[in-house]
């Protein structure tokens, strides 16, 4: 599978990454190399195996329904790059 400039642009868009035009061809080459490397898995017959869900082989542990957190906005907002009162602030979202 060879990655094109367009695929790089699409992956960058999906991942919300601004990629400079000048870097796109280089990235296409690098990503192609990685995909080329991982595609050796195609040779392995996995028809009789289930995907591994967890190496610990356990099932979900659950917690009791109780309020154990909250009412500490300073712990939540302490690192906010921009805030107004107890809200996070971001550039205006146009819906």
């Amino acid at each position: 599978m060879s990655i094109t400039r367009e695929t790089v642009e699409q992956a960058a868009r999906l991942a919300r990454l601004t990629v400079a035009d000048a870097d796109k061809d280089r990235l296409a080459g690098e990503l192609s190399a990685i995909l080329g490397f991982v595609e050796q898995l195609d040779a392995i017959d996995t028809s009789d195996v289930d995907p591994l869900t967890s190496v610990v082989g356990a099932t979900a542990r659950m917690r009791k329904d109780a309020v154990t957190a909250g009412d500490e906005p300073e712990r939540i907002l302490a690192n906010a790059p921009d805030r107004v009162t107890d809200f996070y602030a971001v550039p205006k979202v146009v819906e």
Binding site: V67, T68, A69, G70, P73, I76, T85, Y88
Partner: peptide, 27 residues
């Protein structure tokens, strides 16, 4: 209907001051 959130211990009550019903994992 539950006291706390699906994956955190923050309350589900309606109408609290902003970012008060928030656990670390919710943020």
């Amino acid at each position: 209907l539950s006291e706390s959130k699906l994956f955190s211990g923050a309350s589900t009550t309606f109408g609290k001051a902003p970012n008060h019903n928030v656990a670390l994992v919710d943020a």
